[in-house]
C-alpha cells in the first residue's frame, strides 16, 4: 500500500514530455514534420513529372529505349544545339559575373544615391525577356537609333547587324542576367568585413593587392555560385533566341530543339530526351564549377570576434 503511494504520481506525464526530448536527442524537431505535406506537394508537382519525362525519353515509338538519344547525337542539326547553347550561355554568364565584380566592389560601402543606383541596375530583371527583346530590336536593329547614329556620323557605311543573330541573343542574356549577378555579388561583397582591407592597407598593401589578396579570395566562392545560377538562367534561353536571334541558324539553342520535337514533330520521346540532355549538360558545368569552388576557402569572412 505504501509502496504504491510512494510511486511518483507524475510518472506518466514525464514520459509524455520525454517524447519530444527523445526525438530531439536523435536530431528530430517534431515541428519539422509539418513540412511533410509541402514536401509531398513538391514531389507530386515536380519530381513526378520529371521522372515521367525521363521515362518518356526511353520509350520512343520505334528503335528501342535509346533510339531518341541515338537520333539526337546522329543528327547534326540536333547535336549542334548543345554547342550553340553553351557558346551563348557560358560567355554571357562569365561576362555577367565579371562585370558585376568591379561595379559591386565600388558600391559596397554606403553612399548617397546607392539605393537609386541599385534600383536602376536591377530594373531589367523586372522587365522580362520579351520587353527587353523588343527594346533591343528598336535600339540595335538595322533601322534602330544605334545604327542611325553610326550612319549619320559617318562611322559606318551600312548598318551593323546586332540583332537577329548571335549578338542580339548575347546582349539580351547580358541585360537580363547582369542585374541578377550584380545583386548576388553585391550581397556576397557586403558580407566581407571591411576592416580586413583596412588591416591590409596598414600592412602595406595597395588597392589592387588588397583586392587581389584579400577580397577576391573571400569573394571567389560567391562568384562560383553566382556563375552557376546565371549560367543556368542563360542556358535555358528560349524567347530571346527566337525574337532577337537567328532561331534556325546561329542561335538555334537546345530549348528550340526540344520545342520543335514536342510541338512540331509531336515526338515526345525525342523532346524528353533533349530536355534530359539539357539538364545533364547543365549539371556537368555546375559540377565542374562547384568542384573548383570546393578547393577554395569557404569559411567565415569576418576578421575575428566583433
Amino acid at each position: 500500500m505504501t509502496a504504491t503511494l510512494d510511486r511518483p504520481p507524475e510518472a506518466p506525464r514525464r514520459s509524455r514530455t520525454a517524447l519530444r526530448h527523445r526525438l530531439a536527442e536523435r536530431g528530430i524537431d517534431r515541428q519539422l514534420l509539418l513540412l511533410v505535406p509541402a514536401a509531398l506537394f513538391v514531389i507530386l508537382l515536380f519530381i513526378y513529372p520529371f521522372l515521367y519525362g525521363v521515362g518518356l525519353s526511353f520509350q520512343p515509338a520505334e528503335g528501342g529505349p535509346l533510339a531518341a538519344y541515338r537520333e539526337f547525337f546522329t543528327d547534326a542539326y540536333l547535336r549542334d544545339t548543345i554547342g550553340t547553347t553553351l557558346g551563348l550561355s557560358l560567355p554571357a554568364a562569365l561576362l555577367n559575373v565579371l562585370a558585376s565584380v568591379p561595379i559591386a566592389y565600388r558600391m559596397r560601402g554606403r553612399f548617397r544615391g546607392k539605393r537609386l543606383l541599385t534600383t536602376i541596375l536591377v530594373v531589367p530583371i523586372t522587365l522580362g525577356t520579351v520587353l527587353t527583346a523588343q527594346g533591343l530590336l528598336n535600339f540595335l536593329g538595322p533601322t534602330g537609333w544605334f545604327n542611325r547614329t553610326l550612319l549619320s556620323s559617318g562611322l559606318v557605311d551600312e548598318p551593323v547587324r546586332l540583332t537577329n543573330n548571335y549578338w542580339g541573343v548575347f546582349f539580351s542574356l547580358v541585360i537580363t542576367g547582369f542585374p541578377f549577378a550584380f545583386l548576388l555579388v553585391l550581397s556576397y561583397l557586403s558580407g566581407i568585413d571591411p576592416t580586413l582591407e583596412r588591416a591590409a592597407s596598414t600592412l602595406g598593401a595597395g588597392s589592387w593587392q588588397r583586392f587581389r589578396r584579400i577580397t577576391l579570395p573571400l569573394l571567389a566562392p560567391g562568384l562560383a555560385t553566382t556563375f552557376c545560377l546565371t549560367f543556368v538562367l542563360a542556358f535555358s534561353v528560349f524567347p530571346s533566341a527566337i525574337l532577337v536571334g537567328d532561331p534556325s541558324g546561329t542561335t538555334r539553342v537546345i530549348s528550340i530543339a526540344a520545342y520543335e520535337a514536342a510541338y512540331v514533330q509531336y515526338d515526345y520521346a525525342l523532346a524528353s530526351a533533349v530536355a534530359v540532355l539539357m539538364g545533364l549538360v547543365e549539371l556537368i558545368v555546375i559540377a565542374i564549377v562547384l568542384g573548383w569552388r570546393a578547393l577554395l576557402y569557404t569559411g567565415s569572412t569576418a576578421g575575428g570576434k566583433g
Binding site: 568585413d193 596598414t202 573571400l218 569559411g299
Partner: peptide, 20 residues
C-alpha cells in the same frame, strides 16, 4: 600619405585577421 605608405603597424579591435 595613404596608410600603406606610412609604415605603421596596427592592431584592430576585432583583430581583422585574414580568415582565409
Amino acid at each position: 600619405l595613404p596608410p600603406e605608405k606610412r609604415g605603421f603597424g596596427m592592431v584592430f579591435q576585432n583583430y581583422a585577421l585574414f580568415p582565409h
